[in-house]
């Protein structure tokens, strides 16, 4: 892939990821369990990871967090988002590099790490009480992470080589 094509692809994937973030903001989420999000944006990061590699996945994730924070969230929102995204990215890069995990495993691991990254920041701001949410969020992460992993793998397969 030429440098120009790679730059264009990264820009495209970052834009798609940002749109997925926006779509997520539009969906009124389940009221029964607090703090649960579908995590669609991770589909974009996963597709980048599988097509362009970890470095570009990191770049796309960072662009998404900063732009989504600027457009739809507050400063503390960016802080949570950044902590979640960083934790998710580290776990996904490691699982991906291990080469024994499929897209579902990488995605679920990332979703679970995202929760603990965010809860860690929340715990710093508000104390350990926030961990009462963790079990519900972890269960949700298995479902949303699994679905996003399947979607990401299908997208990567459908892309022209």
């Amino acid at each position: 892939m030429s440098a120009a094509r790679r730059a264009a692809t990264v820009g495209l994937l970052a834009a798609v990821t940002l749109v997925l973030s926006y779509v997520e903001h539009l969906i009124p989420m389940s009221v029964a369990i607090p703090g649960i999000k579908p995590g669609f944006a991770n589909i974009g990061v996963l597709v980048t990871l599988y097509t362009l590699g970890g470095g570009y996945a990191t770049l796309v994730s960072l662009i998404r967090v900063l732009l989504a924070g600027l457009l739809f969230a507050s400063f503390s929102g960016v802080l949570y988002s950044l902590a979640g995204a960083a934790a998710a990215l580290i776990v996904m890069l490691l699982l991906h590099r291990a080469k024994i995990f499929g897209a579902v495993g990488v995605s679920v691991g990332g979703a679970a790490a995202h929760i603990f990254g965010q809860l860690a920041v929340a715990a710093c701001l508000m104390g350990g009480v926030v961990f009462g949410y963790a079990p519900w969020m972890t269960l949700a992460a298995i479902a949303t992470g699994g679905i996003n992993g399947v979607i990401a793998a299908l997208v990567v397969r459908a892309l022209p080589r």
């Binding site: 892939m1 579902v104 972890t138 269960l139 080589r161």
Partner: peptide, 29 residues
């Protein structure tokens, strides 16, 4: 898009360990 694109597997056996680890964490919680 390079050779990586052809190798994506949706699910591998090891993914069960990731899911099991998350389930255990949730159950303990």
């Amino acid at each position: 898009m390079g050779k990586a694109a052809g190798e994506v597997r949706i699910f591998k056996k090891a993914d069960l360990f990731v899911i099991a680890a998350a389930l255990i964490a949730a159950a303990v919680g």
